[in-house]
Simulated scan of single mutants.
Amino acid sequence: MPDPVHVRELAADDLDAAWELGRFAFGSDPQRPAHATATPAGLTRYGAFDDTGRLVGKAVDLHHDQWWSGSAVSAADVAGVAVAPEARGRGVARAMLTALLCGARDRGAAISALYPTVAAPYRACGWETAGVLRTVDLATALLPRHRPAAHLVVRAGTAADLPAVAALYERVTRHRNGMLTRRGELFDVFTADRGLPGDGLTLVKDDGDLVGYATWQRGRGYGADSVLTVDEALAVTAEAARELVGVLASWASVAPTLRLCPFDGDVVGLHLPLESAREHERDLWMHRPVDVARAVSARGWPAHVRGTVDVTLVDPLAEWNSGTWRLTVAEGAGELTRISGEADLRLDVRGFALLYAGAAPARSVAQAGLLHHAAGVDPAALDLLGAGGPAQLLDYF
């Protein structure tokens, strides 16, 4: 039987041990950065301790908000999960994640996302794969170049332009699902110095209004292996996207490779030769409800979607989610109401995550064994839970 562990929030005195645990787990540089032992607002650190008081595990709840069809939904995004090698396989991660979910629910979180180094332990705790953040390489010389539009102004940005950049990011992302709002105390810490987020910031303006931007890292050298890394390139008009792509194309002689994360359906991506892209990196991300009733009521829903469906939900780790619920969606709002009895549809919490994030239709969830239904009952009724399209993430954490 596994040795019991005690899980609690980490105090300032615990942060040196937490840094060392993370350093060994992730192979970090031995030089400790200043933020490793800081205590910024907007996150909660959890630790698991054995019966001698030794720290054997850690996990961080990032107090993010995510956009879901125009509404900001409180999230407990998980990062920095590490378990000492001698304590692995003994239920330490499960104990920490259970405590994290309880604490997140108490502070009002509705949903959770994470990037796993290995998916199985998180699947066992109710998270399920919902998408991939892809990083690709493009030959810079393949990018199209257009004659600059006379009515657009293209210039280098400064720190004074960052509020306008943040407003344009929100304009692009708030009607989507899953994107971080980049608001709140944690992001206030990141932007406190008001410096540029990379080596350069390129802006496109139309009659004084920002309509596109790109942030980028120049990298080193100018030979065949030189890479220009585009951290982000977003636009709200096709003309602005063409201008940004033209600026990026101008680097071809000194940075033959362009590295970026394509954003499905984004205006800039529609002007890139992505058919020629080579995958550089892929980061799988997973999703989970913290509080299913809150997850449904807090998000936005497509105004044209209407329906009602009953479902019995099973969530062994977060028992407050378990039970029989009636989902009602109408006029851009949704609600889960507890009802008595057993429904004809029985859904595992991982299936809820897949449906909510738009990662799979109900029939596929049933084929995966995460949704069970009585004979003659169409599982597609639960597609109502996934209305609004697939979730995406642009931020790694």
Rank of each mutant, 00 (worst) to 15 (best):
P2A: 13
P4D: 13
A11V: 14
D16Q: 12
A18P: 00
E20Q: 04
G22W: 00
F26V: 02
G27Y: 07
G27Q: 06
S28M: 05
Q31L: 00
A38S: 15
T39H: 14
P40D: 11
L43E: 13
R45F: 02
Y46S: 09
D51H: 13
G53E: 07
L55K: 05
K58A: 08
V60R: 12
H64N: 06
D65L: 03
Q66Y: 04
W67L: 06
A72G: 09
V78L: 13
A82W: 05
V83D: 08
R88V: 07
V92M: 04
V92G: 05
V92P: 10
R94F: 01
R94W: 05
A95M: 03
M96K: 08
M96S: 04
L97I: 13
L97P: 10
A104K: 10
R107V: 07
A109Y: 02
A119R: 09
R123C: 09
A124I: 04
V132T: 11
L133I: 06
A139E: 00
L142P: 00
L142V: 01
L143V: 05
P144M: 03
R145F: 00
R145M: 03
A149M: 08
H151S: 15
R155E: 15
T158A: 14
L162W: 10
P163G: 12
E170P: 03
R171Q: 15
R171H: 14
N177T: 10
L186H: 10
L186T: 03
R194V: 12
G195F: 04
P197N: 09
D207S: 14
D207L: 03
V211N: 07
V211H: 13
Y213P: 01
A214N: 01
Q217G: 03
Q217P: 00
G219P: 08
R220G: 05
G221A: 12
Y222L: 02
G223Q: 03
G223E: 05
D225K: 03
L234N: 01
V236F: 11
E239F: 02
A240F: 06
A249E: 00
A249D: 00
A255R: 15
P256L: 12
T257K: 00
T257W: 05
L260Q: 01
L260C: 04
C261E: 14
F263R: 13
D266W: 01
E275D: 11
H280N: 11
W285K: 03
R288I: 11
V290C: 12
A298P: 05
R299S: 01
H304P: 00
R306Q: 14
T308M: 07
V314I: 13
N321M: 08
R326A: 13
V329H: 11
E331I: 03
L336G: 06
R338P: 08
S340D: 15
A343W: 11
L347G: 12
D348S: 04
F352G: 01
A353W: 06
L354Y: 01
L355V: 06
L355H: 06
Y356E: 10
Y356R: 06
A357R: 02
A362T: 10
R363I: 08
R363T: 15
H373S: 09
A374V: 13
A375C: 03
G376D: 04
G376W: 12
D383Q: 10
L393P: 11
L394R: 14
